[in-house]
């Protein structure tokens, strides 16, 4: 389960726990159904409660970048914990201007 919040045209998703391949499909479905029903101007993925993430999480970020782009919105990722900073850097998602 994840918490989401919608205010002033901004959809915030509070991710938590371990993000791997096993969990990614569910997260994708949940987030995309919110994106498609709310059509937010901005999607914010909050990583403060995420304890582990592998490249499946990078795929999740890239996929939501596209999904929110399709409804005319932009993606921001925030509160990246110290232990995830290396994988985020290595992935190059920062070059998309999402930070």
């Amino acid at each position: 389960m994840i918490q989401t919040d919608y205010k002033n045209d901004v959809l915030t998703v509070y991710l938590n726990g371990e993000i791997d391949h096993n969990r990614a499909a569910n997260l994708r479905t949940t987030i995309d159904s919110r994106i498609n029903s709310l059509r937010p101007r901005r999607l914010e993925l909050d990583f403060s409660k995420v304890s582990f993430m592998d490249s499946s999480g990078i795929g999740l970020i890239m996929g939501r970048y596209r999904a929110v782009g399709l409804v005319g919105g932009e993606l921001k990722i925030k509160n990246i914990p110290e232990n995830l900073s290396r994988i985020i850097e290595l992935s190059g998602v920062t070059s998309l201007g999402v930070l």
Binding site: S55, I58, G59, I87, S91
Partner: peptide, 9 residues
């Protein structure tokens, strides 16, 4: 939605 980054990681 695979990023192609597993081996790089």
């Amino acid at each position: 939605e695979r990023a192609g980054l597993g081996f790089a990681v």
